[in-house]
Design a protein around this nucleic acid. Sequence first.
DNA 1: CAAACGTATGCAATCGTTTGCACAAAAATC
DNA 2: GATTTTTGTGCAAACGATTGCATACGTTTG
Lengths: 334, 334
Amino acid sequence: MTTTLKDIAKQLKTSVSTVSRALQNHPRISAEKTKKIQDLARELDYQPNSFAINLKKKTSKTLGVIVPELSLHFFSEILSGMDETAHRNGYQLLICQSGEKVEREKEQIQNLYKANVDGILVAVSKETSNFGNFDLLRKKGFPVVLFSRTHPNFPSVHSDDINGGFLATKHLIQQGCKTIAHIAGPWHLYATKDRQNGYLKALETYHLPINQSLIIHSDLEKESNIEAVHQLLNREQNFDAIFCFNDYVAYDIIQVLKEKQIITGKDVLIVGFGNQPISTQMEPKLTSVDQQPYQIGIKSIEMILNSINSKIETSIKQTEILETMLIVRNSTYH
Amino acid sequence: MTTTLKDIAKQLKTSVSTVSRALQNHPRISAEKTKKIQDLARELDYQPNSFAINLKKKTSKTLGVIVPELSLHFFSEILSGMDETAHRNGYQLLICQSGEKVEREKEQIQNLYKANVDGILVAVSKETSNFGNFDLLRKKGFPVVLFSRTHPNFPSVHSDDINGGFLATKHLIQQGCKTIAHIAGPWHLYATKDRQNGYLKALETYHLPINQSLIIHSDLEKESNIEAVHQLLNREQNFDAIFCFNDYVAYDIIQVLKEKQIITGKDVLIVGFGNQPISTQMEPKLTSVDQQPYQIGIKSIEMILNSINSKIETSIKQTEILETMLIVRNSTYH
DNA sequence: CAAACGTATGCAATCGTTTGCACAAAAATC
DNA sequence: GATTTTTGTGCAAACGATTGCATACGTTTG
């Protein structure tokens, strides 16, 4: 049996309230009694019942997190930062995945809400285009923060994808490339626009012509990526570099180029995005844009704790944009 | 304000108990009243207060999970399986990381215990050698399951590392290798013994001599791995294959061999362990032993739910060993 | 020495549920 | 028609903590 305040009170022939106060070092309880109670509590290994406390205080010190897929390295690194920060602030994390399904995502939001978490952090699924679920929560004054996969109408934490795209493209230009292709992501991902805009901005800034046929969208599946390179290779005009939506796209593309005896880093320069482990594991090592996922995790927790603690309207739109930086490796440099 | 049973009762001029029962479809409540209550509940978007229910039922439908590092792909894939299975059974996951520190691990166990989770699943940290924390829990009859990084005295789920080591080594032998080295892990990891024993068993089975100088232990840090290959290269006698403790070790080693112009898959065959993404991303692609991490996740949850539901002594030692299988790729095959 | 105050404690309500039990009224039994 | 059984409802006590208020001292003050 677990020890309760009642047990301690009974043993010491005092009341539950006195015990409760003593354990909180309430000044009105005599030093002597306080000591006696605390000693016994220790001896009996008293653990306050969190359910009772939560019920009374209406707070669980728990945050809900929904990621599309736990095993995607990018997200697990964000989670790592979240866990660290949450714990430092006395919070725990109820983590679940949406599997990229809106239905599932909706269900998970419900679950977390029912579990009385103090706030919810979400990287929305690929399928999510309707943000009604989140709006409902927000209308109830419930703290919500979107991270990485965000939406402009909600408190958000994400990386500076525009600048990331800009840096990547600028680097290619500075390496002497003149015809830079871009394999972009699917339109419903918010990052797609940003990275592409960064790409366009760089071309503009350095007075290179913009050619729509050099921009190809992929749904990020392997087949789609391969299809994208083929499309590029079949154009009459040549290209000398590709800025890819992410590292996995870059990897798939480089495999195709290898088959065609096109040497990455010499014939064609390639830049990825995300600076995932794959970028150092593949051959050649991939130049990529780092997004500081761990930092995204930290900032997201900080933001939601802020909105929980300061009972200020959470509907104040708040956005944290994390710096991106280019990591140069062999795929653009020899 | 959130709706409570009381609110519904008041509006319908009935009692809280009747409302409670109606919502549970208790047969003793008239069909008419039940419908009225359920309708109003829906209308008011009544959400039962989980704290109160937990308090009453002394169960939280939440499981605690501790992993050494969230961002290690192996663990995040296990977590993915856990999440899936837990949710299918109406449980949620409180996930945290130990950062490979015993101290932190101990702290997290305390946290989870205080949070009144219904059970705890742990992959122990590298530092953990003393299992006293877990023993304490078990003595209280608290459900604990170790996974992946386990200990023979506790209910455990892990892969068949012995057979994994055996399969890997057998494959090398069948590829014609005669002098097979093994870069082993640190002794305190339980898997180290098993994988090494599998290696030894294969040599024995196929009548190859066992040579202790071909077995080198690494602490799995990059420097240590590099040091290990050098040690092998400096032996007077040559070797024609290396069975590595895991894929990352294999990767580091292959980098060193490349520098020395030794061609992996031709001059030396290499097998890794874990079948991590890196094994298909590196060049050459790595032959590796798959451990079914997702399955480990599923089985672990099933095991702990079992011990929660059947109130049978959880101290009955229970171990689930998952099959391993060899995935052959270019590092051992041309 | 009575009034006023400070100190130390306990009572009891509260948080939102669940559930055993009591108690009616209605229905079934003899 | 009296007795038993069924059916429908509500009371009140849990679950384990927190906290405003009352109370009972002992001490200071005028």
